[in-house]
Amino acid sequence: MTTDILSNPVRVDVAGEFEILQRDGVVGKKGAFAPGWVDQLREDMMTAFWEAIQRPGGAVGRGPRRWYVELHPQALSGFTELVSHPWITAMAEKVLGPDYQIVEIGFDTPFQGASNQPWHRDFPSPVDTYEGRRITSLAFNLTGVDVTPDMGPFEVAPGTQWDDGRGWNHEMFPDRSVWPRFEERATRKYPQRGDISCRSALTMHRGTAHPSPIARPVLVIGVDAPGAGHAALHDMMVTKEFYAGLPASVREHLTCRVVDELVPITQKHDIEGLVMGSDR
């Protein structure tokens, strides 16, 4: 553990957080990273955004004035510290097992003028979840800014990770007639730089309206249990030199192509139902 990166020692007993995740579908860890470390992360994300927005398939629309960008690990100067964080690794192993797979690195960025997204989940629920109540995939989120009410805070409906959803549009977008159920449960999140959250991507959620002139990039680390299958939706790459320099504890969990030269990612996971946004 390096004290110039981590703001304080991190407890790795996550039994309590695991219970909260099972109940609510989302749980957080305050102050996991130092704010200064996150400032560099934000710079890395915004640099990647301005590069991606200029090429087809580089930045995918997730509603008006809101984009999602997938990254190669080398785009983040603190990648190893990020995925080696004791709370992230402990949660991933507790929920997904010792052979968990890091399948996606990306970030969502709303800008001024972004509107409410429709309530949604990020992919259809597998039978292991809606029948077996087993979470097979996690999303870890790390904000690049201190979130305020005008920054389109993330809104989540706790406990909805177990909803079946097979009758929804694309098994991801419920009809507006059932939105009141999510709105009754809705909780808005205001993380600060250095906070981490861990959620099932099946927990119903949405980004909200963003009148602030300050962009709100939030990093996403997608992690699967073996067999969950989401690696097929992504195409992370690392160079041979970068891969060789990673700790073995990172390499054994990283699902990616090892290449001589990186090429830009053309995103495969385009959530069509988010493109138009929502008026509520």
Rank of each mutant, 00 (worst) to 15 (best):
T2S: 14
D4H: 02
I5G: 01
S7W: 08
N8D: 12
N8A: 15
V10W: 05
R11Q: 14
D13W: 03
D13F: 09
D13Q: 10
E17M: 13
E19S: 11
I20C: 07
L21C: 09
R23G: 02
G28A: 14
K29M: 09
G36E: 12
G36K: 02
G36W: 04
M45Y: 05
E51C: 09
I53Y: 14
Q54W: 03
P56Q: 07
V60R: 01
G61T: 15
G63R: 01
W67P: 00
Y68G: 05
L71R: 03
A75V: 01
H85Y: 07
T89D: 01
T89E: 03
A92K: 02
E93H: 10
E93M: 07
E93R: 15
P98L: 00
D99V: 03
Q101W: 04
I102Y: 01
I102R: 06
V103R: 00
E104R: 12
G106S: 09
S115R: 12
P118H: 10
W119S: 02
R121D: 08
R121P: 05
D122A: 05
P124D: 04
P126T: 12
V127I: 13
D128Y: 04
E131I: 15
R133K: 15
R134W: 02
L138R: 00
A139C: 11
F140M: 15
N141F: 12
D146Q: 06
P149C: 08
P149N: 13
A157E: 08
Q161G: 11
G165T: 08
R166D: 10
G167K: 03
N169E: 11
N169V: 12
E171A: 14
F173S: 03
F173Y: 14
P174C: 02
P174S: 01
R176E: 15
R176P: 07
R181F: 07
R181T: 05
F182E: 11
E183F: 07
E183S: 15
R185G: 07
R188F: 13
K189H: 13
S200T: 11
L202A: 10
L202M: 11
M204V: 11
H205S: 13
R206Q: 08
G207S: 14
A209D: 12
H210V: 05
A215H: 05
V220K: 06
V220S: 13
I221K: 00
I221S: 00
G222H: 01
L233Y: 09
L233A: 15
L233F: 13
M237I: 06
M237V: 01
T239W: 07
K240C: 10
S249A: 12
R251H: 10
E252D: 13
E252V: 12
L254W: 00
L254E: 03
R257P: 04
V258M: 07
D260W: 08
L262N: 03
V263Y: 05
I265L: 10
Q267Y: 06
Q267F: 09
Q267D: 11
I271F: 08
G273I: 11
L274M: 03
L274K: 02
V275I: 15
M276E: 11
G277C: 05
S278C: 14
D279T: 09
